[in-house]
Structure formats: C-alpha cells, structure tokens
C-alpha cells in the first residue's frame, strides 16, 4: 500500500515540479519586455562603451597635434607579447644637444592581449585605451598601427 501511495505521490510531485518550470518559461514568454538582447549594428549611435573599456591602445594628441611620448621605451619593455615597437630618432634641439624624439610608435593590435601594462607603466601618461572595438579588417597588416600622428611632436611642459 505504501508503495502504491508512493507511486502516486511521485507522479503528482513530478507533474507539479514540471509545472513550476513551465511557469518560469511561460512567464517570460508573455513578457517580451524581459528581452535583454542588444540590437548591435542598429544601436551604434546610442552604444556607449565604458570609459575604461580596453578597445585598443591610443596615443592622445591635443589640438596642436602634440603628444606626450618621449620615446623612452618603457612600454616596449613592459609589453609581454612584443606588440609595441618604438623607433626613435636623435635630433639636435634648440641648445644644440642631441635629443631623443619618437619617430614611430608602432603598435601591433593583432598581438595585443590588453593587459594594460603599457598604459600603467608609461611615465608620461602618453598612452591610453581607446573605446573603438570594431577591429575587423581584411588584411592583417592593417592591424599594425603607428600611434603618433604624422607631423606630431612632443608636448613641452613646464618643468614642475
């Protein structure tokens, strides 16, 4: 008798547990407002990435086309993957001394793992993370970027 009552108890308990699950999915079926998907290419205009989003490494330039990179090479040294190459020139400055200036700050986006060490360790805060994330290109060589803009030069700041 006990086993018979267990048989029916199992059956009805099972059905009620299934119904509990169906209530959850049924609830979401009738509430389309619960949809969480973002319509990506359509929402481009309103899509704001977080301010700290690590999309790519950029070198911020101001309106006079000046940047802060001295070409010291610390970012190149700290990069674990070798995605940064720095080419410097030696040119005489106003006082006639030879001074190191940055020629090309080459950044291989294809090798970057976005660990953030270059941005963190840069002594002059010349690097930053950009918010752009649409990096798909047809040619891999396009992922190798020169971060300092042509014609740009080092921002001369008043010594603190």
């Amino acid at each position: 008798m006990n086993s018979i009552s267990k048989y029916f108890k199992d059956m009805f308990g099972g059905i009620s547990s299934l119904w509990a699950g169906m209530r959850v999915t049924g609830k979401y079926f009738v509430s389309p407002r619960a949809i969480v998907t973002q319509q990506y290419p359509e929402n481009r205009a309103t899509l704001k990435m977080e301010e700290r989003f690590k999309g790519e490494i950029i070198m911020p330039h101001d309106e006079n086309n000046l940047h802060a990179c001295t070409g010291c090479g610390i970012c190149e040294m700290n990069c674990p993957n070798g995605s940064i190459e720095i080419i410097t020139n030696r040119v005489p400055n106003a006082e006639g001394k030879m001074e190191r200036i940055i020629d090309k700050h080459i950044y291989h986006l294809s090798m970057c793992t976005f660990c953030g060490l270059c941005v963190k360790t840069c002594p002059s805060d010349a690097l930053a993370f950009g918010q752009k994330f649409e990096h798909a290109v047809f040619d891999r060589s396009k992922l190798t970027k020169v971060l300092n803009q042509p014609g740009s030069s080092l921002r001369k700041e008043a010594k603190k």
Partner: peptide
C-alpha cells in the same frame, strides 16, 4: 529562485 524552479526542483533533473 527561478533557477531552482527551472532545474533544481525538476523531476526529470532529479
């Protein structure tokens, strides 16, 4: 609780 209703309590899952 929804997780529990959907899977934890489900007889098939048991």
């Amino acid at each position: 609780p929804e997780y529990d209703q959907l899977l934890t309590g489900n007889v098939i899952f048991h």
